[in-house]
Amino acid sequence: MTKSIVKLFGLAVVALPLAGCGLTSSTTQPTVAAAPPTPATSNSPILDSLDPADRARAEQARRTALDGKAKVSIDWKSDSNATTHGSVVAGPLQNQGAAPCRQYSQTVYKDGVPSVARSTACRQPDGGWVNS
Score class of each variant (00 low, 15 high):
residue 85 H to C: 01
residue 52 P to R: 12
residue 13 V to S: 00
residue 116 V to I: 11
residue 106 Q to L: 14
residue 96 Q to F: 06
residue 9 F to P: 00
residue 6 V to W: 12
residue 9 F to D: 05
residue 1 M to N: 11
residue 121 A to L: 05
residue 111 D to P: 05
residue 98 A to S: 15
residue 47 L to N: 12
residue 21 C to T: 13
residue 82 A to V: 09
residue 113 V to W: 02
residue 11 L to Y: 07
residue 32 V to R: 10
residue 4 S to A: 14
residue 79 D to I: 01
residue 18 L to S: 12
residue 10 G to T: 02
residue 126 D to T: 01
residue 130 V to R: 13
residue 32 V to L: 11
residue 99 A to H: 09
residue 1 M to R: 08
residue 19 A to M: 11
residue 9 F to Y: 10
residue 30 P to G: 06
residue 113 V to Q: 10
residue 51 D to Y: 04
residue 18 L to M: 15
residue 14 V to G: 03
residue 129 W to C: 07
residue 91 G to R: 08
residue 30 P to E: 01
residue 120 T to P: 00
residue 111 D to N: 14
residue 29 Q to I: 03
residue 132 S to T: 11
residue 62 R to V: 01
residue 39 P to F: 01
residue 107 T to Y: 04
residue 42 S to Y: 06
residue 84 T to R: 12
residue 59 E to W: 09
residue 39 P to I: 00
residue 10 G to W: 07
residue 99 A to L: 07
residue 60 Q to Y: 05
residue 20 G to L: 08
residue 74 I to V: 15
residue 66 L to C: 02
residue 106 Q to R: 04
residue 74 I to G: 06
residue 90 A to T: 04
residue 3 K to M: 09
residue 69 K to M: 06
residue 28 T to L: 03
residue 10 G to D: 06
residue 48 D to H: 03
residue 5 I to M: 10
residue 58 A to Y: 00
residue 122 C to A: 02
residue 130 V to C: 07
residue 55 R to D: 07
residue 114 P to Y: 03
residue 30 P to R: 03
residue 117 A to C: 06
residue 4 S to C: 03
residue 9 F to M: 10
residue 116 V to L: 15
residue 70 A to R: 15
residue 59 E to T: 04
residue 95 N to L: 12
residue 51 D to R: 06
residue 49 S to Q: 14
residue 6 V to T: 10
residue 16 L to G: 05
residue 46 I to K: 05
residue 71 K to L: 15
residue 57 R to E: 14
residue 34 A to I: 10
residue 63 R to K: 09
residue 69 K to C: 00
residue 81 N to K: 15
residue 125 P to F: 05
residue 28 T to C: 02
residue 49 S to D: 14
residue 77 K to C: 06
residue 128 G to L: 14
residue 40 A to F: 05
residue 40 A to E: 13
